[in-house]
Design a protein around this nucleic acid. Structure first.
Lengths: 235, 235
DNA sequence: TATATACGATACTATTGAGTTTCGGATCTT
DNA sequence: AAGATCCGAAACTCAATAGTATCGTATATA
């Protein structure tokens, strides 16, 4: 089970034709309304982000989705599977190189990703990740699922920007691109998950100008430098 | 309540002198055996690291410490307070500059910290941190406690090494030392908490040689890019 | 229209675990 | 010695919740 819309058995090929001589278990009665799946999964993610996996109850999710508890259990066999499916169905950030910013400089590309919407989306996903933490040990496959949905896309974007910079000769080709692409996702996650601070523009700029760009040999331009002791927070 | 040994009311100043005319509540009977506190806190940390806060039960801790459940509740009012105290009493890594390696180079200092014992200790603390994750939202003060016990010492060590390198002129003084000191603690934590991978020597070296040193203008190893690149550099 | 199934709501069952109490025995003060 | 308090062990209370079952209603097939 990976995608919620595929949790049911594959559609009967011709549900309208009854003319089957042999064993053809045609479904009778009201059909399951799969148009509600996204709302339920969305509710699960919201509760997950707010209360964490252990604090989350099925009743909370059902109430938030305005659905009955039994409906949830008709579609997912357990709380764990529901959460797993919700994470798997999380819409990934766009990593299509064609739709990514391409400003001609590494710094331009990296800072172009600092947009309110992007920051909000990232924060929300990290809150979801925080809610998943207690589940990661008991559900090993969740590590891959969550990584694929939340971490990998961010890393992929950074990798693209770095590779472009190498290709255009802006930075040397012997940089450790893989490790560098992990820097900001790791440090942003750490900041949200452990430090419980927000990931704001200043923090992201301090990563770009204080770590990434210097590490590829691009000293920071005329401006920049974060005031001692980190950026604004608010926890 | 911060240190386990201080959880009890401050010692009666003269418990042996009964000659008090007014209200002097002298304690009678068997004394609480505080020599067992460390074993109990140690058991709590072990269970915490293994099962996480939600999976951890008081009975597990009592059993592991070979103590009675009631004994634990005589000393700590709740599961949460026990855990909080256990984390607060975690022995911090040594950050005394006098006992830190001082090899004369930044890379020497940083790699000198890569020792089996140091790695093991760090891994254990990160497992404890992982176990605390689900508690961080409901217990805000735990953020500071855990940060002080687990994160801050590591950051402090890196800060010392970086500052030394500045002082000896090895690296420029306008580096963002605060952000750089956070890199390896953040990325190691992320690797353990989210990726569920181990923090091994290779990973730590890739942080040092792929991120930290390049970011302060020290290409890795004896040879490195900037020299043959023509222009002096640009750092 | 008759039948089968999904729906939301709600009651129910069974388990788990935090925190309390009780007990026989040990250790302290006086 | 006597009384108070600690100890580990184990029984107990009580609230929360995952998962199931039931109900009246809505919607599908035949």
């Amino acid at each position: 089970m990976t995608q919620s819309f595929l949790t049911e058995e594959p559609q009967r090929e011709e549900p309208t034709t009854p003319a089957s001589p042999a064993s053809k278990p045609v479904k009778l009665g009201r059909k399951r309304d799969h148009t509600r799946d996204p709302a339920i999964l969305e509710a699960a993610l919201a509760v997950l982000a707010e209360t964490g996996y252990d604090g989350m109850t099925i009743d909370m999710v059902a109430a938030r989705a305005k659905a009955g508890k039994a409906t949830l259990y008709r579609r997912w066999p357990s709380k764990a599977e529901l959460v797993l499916d919700a994470v798997a169905c999380l819409k990934k950030a766009d990593t299509d190189p064609a739709r990514l910013p391409d400003t001609g400089t590494l710094r331009g590309d990296l800072t172009a990703m600092i947009k309110p919407h992007t920051i909000e989306d990232g924060e929300r996903k990290l809150q979801i990740m925080a809610g998943l933490m207690s589940m990661l040990n008991s559900t090993p496959e969740l590590v891959d699922t969550a990584t694929a949905a939340i971490v990998d896309p961010r890393v992929a974007v950074n990798r693209i920007f770095l590779r472009r910079a190498v290709d255009r000769g802006e930075i040397p080709s012997d940089c450790d691109l893989e490790t560098l692409a992990l820097v900001s996702p790791s440090m942003a996650a750490f900041r949200v998950l452990v430090l419980k601070k927000t990931v704001d523009r200043d923090f992201l700029l301090s990563l770009i100008d204080g770590v990434i760009l210097p590490a590829v040999g691009l000293g920071v331009g005329p401006t920049r430098r974060l005031t001692e002791d980190g950026s604004t927070d608010t926890r």
